[in-house]
């Protein structure tokens, strides 16, 4: 419980620091909202032009897109410390200071910097979910809401895990590895659309290697009450977000290996 209390203090300190410049904080949030919202224009244009997509409607796509946006924004909010680990902690030698403190590194890196601007993407995800709900004439029940929260938890774990791996790699490269953006931002991009439209090898990658499909595609099918056109069994759909937590566990193993070989840099 002590850890949670500390995290809240960390969070409120970093948020208080950001609202010293309220206009700046608001503008960054608004910027992230519009920048992520324009993908909805592409989806709208494609459906206006072509009508439908293999039985998927605009509302279905909005559900995929909205849910994955919410998951990613929460993970992004919590993981900034891992994201900038190479440039801000390893290269400068700051990491040694964190290691000396009597709390875990994970806790300190989560609390390091919680960016308010991430609420821009969170708001975008919620708005897109509303668009989906309205378009499908969909009714949320308690069970469906619980399933959505469960999927968001799994998605947050998965994206958090990806950024932990990015941090772990910087124990070797020192620099933060920008190439990981392919899987984080690119993962959000891929999860906007149902997996059934992708090529087989790409689907396999998104289910078994980096299980983004398990935290967006399958649980959304369960929420919408649709059977999987790819033939996944019905019992699997609601339990699939577990894969996100499994991925997080694996990424912390990689993190440990990296941390064990850390021998300080900087001066």
């Amino acid at each position: 419980m002590d850890a949670i209390r500390l995290l809240i203090r960390y969070g409120s300190a970093s948020i208080r620091a950001q609202i010293q410049y309220p206009f700046n904080a608001i503008m960054l949030g608004v910027g992230q909202f519009t920048a992520t919202m324009i993908d909805m224009i592409a989806i709208w244009a494609l459906f206006a032009r072509f009508g439908a997509l293999d039985g998927w409607r605009l509302g279905d796509i909005a559900m995929f897109f909205g849910l994955v946006s919410v998951s990613f924004s929460v993970a992004d909010f919590l993981s900034r410390g891992f994201d900038v680990l190479g440039a801000e902690f390893i290269k400068t030698g700051q990491l040694d200071r964190l290691l000396l403190r009597p709390r875990t590194l994970t806790l300190q890196l989560i609390g390091n910097d919680m960016r308010l601007s991430r609420f821009g993407r969170l708001a975008q995800g919620l708005v897109v979910l509303c668009i989906g709900t309205a378009n499908l004439d969909f009714h949320w029940t308690v069970a469906k809401l619980a399933l959505a929260l469960w999927a968001i938890a799994g998605g947050t774990a998965l994206f958090f895990g990806l950024i932990v791996i990015q941090g772990a790699i910087s124990f070797w490269t020192v620099e933060s590895l920008e190439a990981m953006n392919v899987l984080t931002y690119g993962g959000v991009q891929a999860a906007q659309f149902p997996l059934s439209i992708y090529a087989r090898w790409f689907r396999t990658f998104l289910i078994f290697v980096v299980p983004i499909g398990c935290v967006a595609y399958f649980p959304v099918l369960a929420i919408l009450g649709k059977p999987d056109p790819l033939g996944a069994p019905a019992w699997f759909l609601p339990v699939s977000p577990l894969a996100g937590f499994a991925f997080l566990a694996v990424s912390f193993l990689a993190w440990r290996v990296g941390l064990a070989r850390y021998a300080s840099t900087g001066s």
């Binding site: 494609l46 072509f50 997509l53 293999d54 920008e178 953006n181 991009q189 659309f193 992708y198």
Partner: peptide, 25 residues
């Protein structure tokens, strides 16, 4: 190089989406 990887990923996804729309309509 990082930019290039990202662009391959983005381009690939976009084209698969377009292909699905063209095929299905």
């Amino acid at each position: 190089f990082a930019g290039f990887l990202t662009q391959c990923w983005w381009g690939g996804i976009k084209i698969m989406v377009y292909a699905a729309f063209y095929r299905a309509s």
